[in-house]
């Protein structure tokens, strides 16, 4: 076991799955000789050849359609969408076609493809290269949605996504690419339905994913100094969502806060809050709080962007309110 970067973990998962199954093919813009905009696919064209790694024109709809058509005939395509913002150009193929083909065919066809999408800001990347659009896809039955926060999870969940028989939207937050974490030499595919407690606590549960997990962990350190014990629960898989995991955590803490970089309004935190309110109300000592970006487009200017985005400070402040509010109520 040794620490590797998040980005390397993605490359390793692709490489190992391509070696395992010759039906695993890659499609995306600049993924061949250039090795992808962020170097994820570097070396894979040389290793596996042109019938496995398809460097495409800048045509998102055609790319996803190509993956879909090939998947319906036995391939296991993995598409790279350079920024999830560009998925807007491929939404018909994702939402109307891939998500529904198994259902509309009465089970006669399936679409075992993975769409890897980069998301989140990389600092002043502004309105069209910074969004976190994962919640869009959770609204579409037929899709699975995964959002890992560590290199080990990235590798295990990507392997699982590639082997999964359904279309999986796989989110990779740009700001995590250079973060390091220990990854076992042999990684088994994850189960695409399980969250994970990454820090135990007793006063509140912070349900977070991707970069939000790291921010929540930082916030938890600060809160501990105030005598507030925060549990951090990494959601990891949005669809399917681990209700049992959330319930187990709330049984320990009784308070819930959600954290993601996506804008709060209709973000996945709203779904988590609704699940807790509908199904776990008896466990809650206080109203659920949500932390995320304010609902504005991503500004270019750094000081504006930092106002828009969720921060460790906002998480800490919200946690204090959440715990304090409960004390007042009690």
């Amino acid at each position: 076991m040794k620490p590797i970067r998040f980005a390397q973990a993605i490359t390793q998962a692709l490489d190992e799955e391509m070696a395992r199954d010759e039906q695993v093919i890659l499609l995306g813009e600049d993924i061949g000789k250039p090795g992808g905009s962020f170097g994820i696919t570097k070396g894979l064209l040389d290793k596996y050849g042109e019938s496995r790694v398809y460097d495409t024109p800048i045509s998102e709809e055609a790319i996803v359609g190509a993956a879909l058509g090939a998947s319906m005939m036995g391939a296991r395509p993995v598409v790279e969408i350079m920024f999830n913002d560009f998925a807007a150009l491929a939404m018909d193929q994702i939402v109307n076609q891939a998500a529904k083909i198994h259902y509309m065919s009465g089970g006669r066809l399936s679409a075992p493809l993975v769409i890897r999408m980069l998301c989140g800001t990389n600092g002043s990347t502004a309105g069209q290269h910074s969004q976190s659009l994962e919640a869009w896809f959770t609204h579409v039955p037929g899709l699975k949605v995964v959002a890992p926060s560590t290199p080990a999870d990235a590798k295990a969940f990507l392997k699982a996504a590639i082997r999964d028989p359904d279309p999986v939207m796989f989110f990779e937050q740009r700001m995590l690419y250079n973060t390091k974490g220990e990854v076992p030499d042999e990684v088994e595919p994850a189960r695409l339905a399980e969250g994970k407690v990454v820090r135990e606590g007793s006063d509140l549960t912070i349900a977070a994913y991707m970069k939000g997990v790291h921010q929540a962990l930082e916030a938890a350190e600060i809160l501990e100094r105030d005598g507030i014990s925060a549990e951090v629960w990494d959601v990891r898989s949005l669809v399917p969502f681990d209700r049992d995991g959330l319930r187990a955590s709330l049984e320990r803490t009784g308070r819930l806060m959600t954290v993601h970089e996506a804008v709060v309004r209709s973000g996945f935190g709203a779904e988590i809050a609704a699940i807790a309110a509908e199904e776990m109300f008896d466990l809650l000592k206080a109203p659920v709080r949500r932390v995320g970006a304010h609902p504005t487009p991503h500004p270019y200017a750094p000081q504006l962007e930092s106002t828009m985005l969720p921060s460790v400070e906002r998480i800490v402040e919200t946690a204090r309110e959440l715990v304090g509010a409960t004390e007042k109520v009690a």
Binding site: A62, A66, L68, G69, Q93, Q97
Partner: peptide
Amino acid sequence: GANGIVGGGIPIAGGAALQ
């Protein structure tokens, strides 16, 4: 597949041709 989206089958055909 038939298709309810005008032009929706064309990209899928591209993928079928690829395979």
